[in-house]
């Protein structure tokens, strides 16, 4: 279904947003390094504090992000086939499922703050709020981009390079929100349990 020059096809299969993704992933690697090195010397405090987090809510949120990612990937496959209506339907499903991540995260934050765990409680919670907060900003940006796609894109022209590139690029960004969480979840919630 793809038309146009080789450069057009390349820009759809491997769009330039990858430059942003690379910079973002490496900056999170730096954040991970900071958190993990700050943990040295106070690992008891970190692990005890981490046990106050709700690993089950974290699990549910991980499953939500994975499912949202899968739905967005299905939307991209539909768009590549030239099925604009199908792509829009999968994107709507992804938005519906993924909105639960935000609701759960906000509930988690308010429950933690209600129980007296704020960013100034100790170093663990400083970094917990920093990492999950920066990730949450990415989540908000990704959700806004998905919603903007669904309402602003002309899905009848999905075979055109510029329209398809939008769907692929936003999809890649959305998968990155998932990708980063796959490291943040074990780092903050799971490994302290062992």
């Amino acid at each position: 279904m793809q038309s146009g020059t080789a450069a057009d096809r390349a820009s759809v299969n491997f769009p330039s947003i990858w430059a942003f993704i690379l910079a973002d992933c490496f900056s999170f690697a730096i954040l991970f390094t900071i958190v993990m090195t700050e943990r040295i010397g106070q690992s008891d405090l970190f692990d005890k504090a981490a046990r106050h987090l709700d690993a089950q809510l974290g699990l549910v949120n991980t499953l939500i992000l994975i499912t949202g990612s899968w739905l967005v990937a299905l939307a991209v496959v539909a768009a590549r086939r030239g099925d604009g209506a199908g792509a829009r339907k999968w994107l709507l499903a992804a938005i519906a499922v993924s909105s639960a991540f935000g609701a759960i995260k906000l509930y988690e934050y308010s429950a933690k703050i209600g129980a007296g765990f704020t960013p100034i409680t100790n170093d663990f919670f400083t970094y917990y709020y920093m990492l999950t907060g920066l990730h949450f900003l990415h989540y908000i940006g990704g959700m806004a981009a998905l919603i903007a796609l669904v309402f602003n894109l002309d899905f009848s022209k999905v075979s055109e390079t510029s329209v398809l590139r939008w769907i692929v690029s936003v999809g890649i960004f959305w998968h990155m929100v998932d990708l980063l969480w796959l490291f943040i979840y074990p780092m903050l919630y799971l490994l302290p349990l062992i």
Binding site: M176, D178, L179, F183, P186, L190
Partner: peptide, 18 residues
């Protein structure tokens, strides 16, 4: 646990993000 996380991340990168 981290190996599982790494495998998952690799799969997301290659299959979902292409």
């Amino acid at each position: 646990a981290m190996l599982i996380a790494a495998l998952k991340a690799g799969v997301v990168l290659h299959v979902f993000m292409e």
